[in-house]
Design a protein around this nucleic acid. Sequence first.
DNA 1: CTGAAAGCGCTTACAG
DNA 2: CTGAAAGCGCTTACAG
Lengths: 332, 332
Amino acid sequence: MAVTIRDVAQRAGVSKTTVSRVLNGRDELDARTAARVRAVIDELGYVPNARAVAFARGSTRVVAMLLPSLTWPWIGEVVQAAIEVVEDAGYGMLVFTTTQGDQSMRRFTEHVSARAFDGLLVVEPEGTLDYIQSLHDEGLPVVLVDDRGHEPRFASVATTNRLGALAAAHHLLAIGRTRPLVVSGDPRFGCVQDRLAGFAEGFSAAGRSLDPLLTVEGDFTHESGQAAVARALEAHLTFDAVFVHNDSMATGVMAELRRSGLRIPDDVAVVGFDDLPSAAQTEPPLTSVHQPIREMGQAAARALLASFAGTPLPTTPIVLPTSFTVRASTTG
Amino acid sequence: MAVTIRDVAQRAGVSKTTVSRVLNGRDELDARTAARVRAVIDELGYVPNARAVAFARGSTRVVAMLLPSLTWPWIGEVVQAAIEVVEDAGYGMLVFTTTQGDQSMRRFTEHVSARAFDGLLVVEPEGTLDYIQSLHDEGLPVVLVDDRGHEPRFASVATTNRLGALAAAHHLLAIGRTRPLVVSGDPRFGCVQDRLAGFAEGFSAAGRSLDPLLTVEGDFTHESGQAAVARALEAHLTFDAVFVHNDSMATGVMAELRRSGLRIPDDVAVVGFDDLPSAAQTEPPLTSVHQPIREMGQAAARALLASFAGTPLPTTPIVLPTSFTVRASTTG
DNA sequence: CTGAAAGCGCTTACAG
DNA sequence: CTGAAAGCGCTTACAG
């Protein structure tokens, strides 16, 4: 049998109430009483039963995270960072993914209804923003880690997509590239629009406009980057650089460029977006707009935990700045 | 106020006991009573409070997973697969990582003592096997997803490291390569020993022995693969193939080979191990021993869930076979 | 087939 | 500063 608060109380010669007070750090306690109780707790190796505490207190000390999938590198980084913050606070992190579509969402909803956790961090699975919004409206503390450029009416953490793309433009101009191909993500995403706008802005500020034919659409996968470049080359487009909306597509872009006999960066410079750890391992290493991914995960988790302690969740997005990492794909 | 079992009972004109029976699918029930109760449950949108159920039943319907980190691709795949199985069963998955060392382990131990979950899946953080063993000995259901080639005295899921390496040897011999460089992982790991043994076995079965100078040690990182090849070339070793103990090192190996002007596979063929999704995206695409990673995660989760239902955990490892994926890095 | 009652192990007003 | 008692929302013998 596990040791309970009752055992501790008996052994210390106090009531369960007093033990509970020691456990929860209430201050209306005689110091010697508290010390004695603490000694007994150590002696017996007592740890309060999490199930009973959750039940009695009405909160679980567990945070949930809802994600499209765990197998995307970007998401892995975010989750890892968030977990570290959550663990530090003595909380647990319950992870839900939506790889099984409606079935997944139904399961998740059950856990919400069952009040299985105190708050929620979200990297939005496609098309679930309204649902998340409704959870928030019903009183569940929610923080969105926003990789899509939404503008939700609840707490969120985002990055400076426009400024990041602007930095990419400045860099390419600085190394003398004037006809960049742009491989974008799905233009329905706000982040994609921001990246397109920031990049164009950088060129127009330098008195150069972008050839509209030189913007092609990808879907953030390696394959789509490869295909985009293949199409551009087939159409005999000429370009001296490629600005790619994420690193995965950028590796596809570089693969296709090399297949076509083009040298990177001599013939074509390549700039990615994300700057995941793997960007340093491509060939050549990839210049990329750095997203503060870990910081975003941490900030989201911290905001959520703070809300449990009474600090209201922020009503405007927490925006963390991108930076710019230069590697050999632009400065070989 | 959330709706409780009491509300349902009142509205249906039965006792809470009866509602509980309907909820838990006991069969000693009048069909019409059950139907009526179910109707009320739907009408009120009642979902049992997970905290109360966990407390009353003494089990949480939550499984935990202990991991070194979420940012390694191999682990991401395992966790994703395990989560899907766990979610399907209506369970939640609590994820703990040990990126913060002792601090992390202390936090995790608290959750164990607090009985915050019913069972544990583990990808062993370095040096914690004895601790995991002790949790098992104290009665916590544990299943190890074994990427290290341990032989634990509790349930585990593993793969055929020796046979996988044997297949790599056969393939290289089949394409006429006779002097392979081997870039291994840390030889303290059982899986590394198995891969070394299987590979050597394949060559000796063909009447060829491996040059001991041609086995160099890496640490499973991209950089170590790169460094290993750099050292080998510097030492003027000659080889016509490289067998690398994982895909990450293999990309490092390929990068260094290309830097040295060697063509893949014409001058040097490369075989990796793992066959992560990214292996199809390297340049050239990587031939690799395929580990059934998803299947391992699923099998571990299934075994754990089955143990809750009364099926004892297996006492010998569940071993899932590797396969062999041929790509352009050996057959360009 | 059904219900009244005890119990799971804590927390928290309330009273002193 | 401390304790007795109620209560959190379920499950589960036990009795009928």
